[in-house]
């Protein structure tokens, strides 16, 4: 069984009835497995929220299919197993946090003592203990985000869909939300979330999908998307001979490398193999030591998710 299965999902939008249809989702297909944290990445307008809305039947697909727990997305049975936090949520601000959660809990069929105790439990979980009787209009953006998250996990759903859950949160709040996601995963829940914040994705996601202009660019585990090979090497040393230019390094350096008095940055060439690049680094270190230098550090820098993201999204942009 898959938590989410999206097959050839396509969506057309029309701004006005007289304007032509615009394809905002282009035959997108991917799967989310039960129990994993899945990051859905993409720049603004890439189709992330559109996909999420289709999964919740907020909008309908123009073509393709969206399945949740092997059943058509939007059915009552499926919805009762989903918790959802929309992007930049706005809730009825005249309600108190408790009333707000009571409203959403009762829509899920919850009630009585079970609902009351669960409200206190989830508010504590999202760091909002003691705010039960405060009106939402008195909350900051981050607090609204947290109470929205409480609403999403109130009924203990199997799948939690979060649209930009880190928006409006300070670094501490972001860490807390990350911890909640990991806690949900530890309890066997599936977390599917969209975000711009790549650091969060690297920290908690099992798998990711990158979307741009309605097109799925890649999907898979982080380690298969991010290259394990070095991208560049930073070398720091104490240099007794200050004039680096006097060194004969022509056979080691390439045009794009950076050389300072006590710092060098060697970039791996686009066509250069990892072993050739390692050979160059070794030569430079040896050359440095031969001239009486003392190496402080040699650090290999691998490709980050941000590099992958920029590379993939950038490639598509130039192609278009």
């Amino acid at each position: 069984m898959k938590a989410i299965e999206v097959k050839q999902l396509t969506k057309y939008y029309r701004q006005h009835f007289w304007t032509p249809r615009r394809k905002v989702l282009k035959e997108v297909s991917f799967e989310v497995l039960p129990g994993e944290v899945f990051g859905f990445l993409g720049p603004n307008g890439s189709g992330k929220s559109t996909t999420i809305k289709i999964l919740l039947e907020i909008i309908f697909p123009s073509a393709g299919a969206a399945l949740v727990f092997d059943k058509p997305a939007g059915s009552r049975e499926v919805k009762s197993r989903i918790g959802f936090l929309p992007e930049n949520p706005y809730f009825y601000d005249y309600l108190t946090a408790r009333e707000f959660l009571e409203f959403h809990g009762s829509l899920m069929g919850m009630g009585g003592r079970n609902l009351k105790s669960r409200i206190f439990e989830v508010l504590e979980k999202v760091g909002m203990k003691g705010t039960e009787n405060s009106r939402l209009r008195t909350f900051s953006k981050g607090m609204v985000q947290r109470v929205g998250l409480a609403q999403a996990i109130l009924h203990d759903p199997d799948l939690i869909i979060l649209d930009e859950p880190m928006t409006g949160l300070d670094p501490l709040g972001r860490k807390e939300v990350r911890d909640i996601m990991l806690d949900l995963k530890a309890n066997g829940k599936t977390v599917f979330f969209s975000t711009h914040i790549l650091g969060d994705v690297e920290a908690i996601c099992d798998r990711i999908a990158i979307l741009n202009k309605g097109e799925l660019l890649s999907c898979g585990p982080l380690e298969t998307l991010i290259s394990a090979e070095s991208k560049y090497v930073d070398i720091l040393w104490d240099n007794p001979i200050r004039d680096v230019k006097a060194w004969d390094l022509q056979d080691i350096l390439e045009l794009y490398d950076q050389v300072e008095t006590t710092y060098m940055k060697l970039l791996r060439g686009e066509e250069e193999t990892q072993s050739d690049f390692d050979g160059r680094v070794n030569k430079l270190v040896k050359s440095c030591l031969d001239r009486g230098g003392r190496i402080q550090s040699v650090s290999r820098k691998k490709e980050s998710l941000e590099d992958v993201f920029v590379r993939q999204v950038g490639v598509l942009d130039t192609r278009i």
Partner: peptide
Amino acid sequence: ELRTIYTIVSKPVD
């Protein structure tokens, strides 16, 4: 407009 309907529609509500 305020998208409060999103959280309602996402519940098992027809």
